[in-house]
Design a binder for these strands. Structure first.
Lengths: 160, 160
DNA sequence: TTCCGTGCAAACAATTTGCAATAGA
DNA sequence: TCTATTGCAAATTGTTTGCACGGAA
C-alpha cells in the first residue's frame, strides 16, 4: 500500500497498455501528476500543471483521459461538496470526509464506513455509495473553533 | 408536522414580512409552489412552473429568492448527487438518501442519522452536515435488482 | 498504415451579476 | 416617496461534443 510514486505510475501505464489503449504523452503526464500530487486534484488543476511543460494540452483531453481511466478502473472522481469534481488514482483511499470550513479532506476509517453502510442496509435496505460522494461537515478543529466563537474562520470558501 | 399547504404558505409569508423583506408576487408564487410540490424542486422546475401563469419571471429571481429564503431560514437546498441543487421549505424532512439508479429520494430516519453522526464525532471528531448533501447509492429495490441481473435499469440517469 | 486520441472552438448546463426600470411598504 | 426587488442580458464556471489532423502501435 505504501508504494512509491514511480511504481504507481508504472503500474498504471502498464494497465493502460494492457487494456489496448494507447499511451500518449498527455496521458502519461496526467498519470504522473495524479501519482505525485498526493491529494485530490480537479481537472483544471491537472490541466494547468501539465500546461506548464506542454502548453497546448487541452482541458478536453484531461476530461476525456480521466473518464477513460475511470472506465478502466485506474482512477476515479469524488465530489467533495460544491465546486468541481476531484480525481485520484484508484490505489488511494476510498472514503472521504470534506471539511466545509477549511477544505481539508480526511479519510474515513474503513471500520466506520462499513459500520455505517451496514446500519443503512439494515434499516433502509439501501446500498450506500461511498466512492463518489464525500460526507461533508466540519472537521474536529473547525468544529471546536466554531463552537467557541461566532467569527468564521479565514480560509477556503465554506462548502455549504 | 402534518400541516396543510395553506398553513405552511401563510407561515412562510408571515416570516418573510417579519424579517422586513417585501412580499412580491414572484416570491409568493415561489413559496406556494414549494409548499404544494411535496418534493424537492430545482430552480429551473420552479421557474418553469411559475412561468406558466406569469411568463416574465426570470430564473435569476428564482435563484435570488431561494437564496434569500435560505438566509432567513425558511427554505434550504440539498444536493442529491450530480445535477442541479434541489430546494424545499424548512419544515420538511432534513436527511436524505438519493438513489443513483431510479432517482428516488428517501428520508433517512432521525435515529439512524443521529447514530451515524455520533459515531463519526466519536471516531474522527467531525461534525457531519446532513442538511445540504444527501447520501447516495442504491435504494432497496434497485439494489436487489442489480444483484440479480447485470442489465442496468431503464430510468433516470445514474448519479455516479 | 491504421484509427485512436488530440487540439481547438463551440455548445452546454447551472448559476451569478450589472444595471436600469418597477413596484412594495 | 424610497429603495428592495425585478427582468433582461451578459458573464462565469464546470464539463461535453464535433471535427479534422497527427501520432502511437
Amino acid at each position: 500500500v505504501a508504494t512509491s510514486d514511480a511504481a504507481r505510475i508504472e503500474r498504471t501505464v502498464a494497465a493502460i497498455r494492457k487494456s489496448g489503449d494507447r499511451l500518449t504523452s498527455a496521458r502519461l503526464a496526467i498519470v504522473r501528476h495524479l501519482a505525485r500530487a498526493g491529494r485530490h486534484l480537479t481537472a483544471e488543476e491537472i490541466a494547468s500543471a501539465i500546461r506548464a511543460r506542454d502548453p497546448q494540452v487541452s482541458i478536453a483531453t484531461v476530461y476525456r483521459t480521466l473518464d477513460r481511466l475511470e472506465e478502466i478502473g485506474l482512477a476515479y472522481h469524488v465530489h467533495l461538496g460544491h465546486g468541481p469534481a476531484t480525481w485520484h488514482l484508484d490505489d488511494e483511499a476510498h472514503h472521504h470526509f470534506a471539511c466545509q470550513s477549511c477544505g481539508q479532506v480526511l479519510e474515513i476509517p474503513e471500520a466506520l464506513v462499513s459500520s455505517i453502510r451496514s446500519q443503512i442496509k439494515e434499516s433502509m435496505g439501501c446500498e450506500v455509495d461511498t466512492r463518489h460522494f464525500a460526507m461533508t461537515g466540519l472537521c474536529a478543529t473547525c468544529s471546536a473553533r466554531q463552537s467557541q466563537c461566532a467569527e468564521p474562520v479565514v480560509g477556503l470558501e465554506p462548502t455549504t
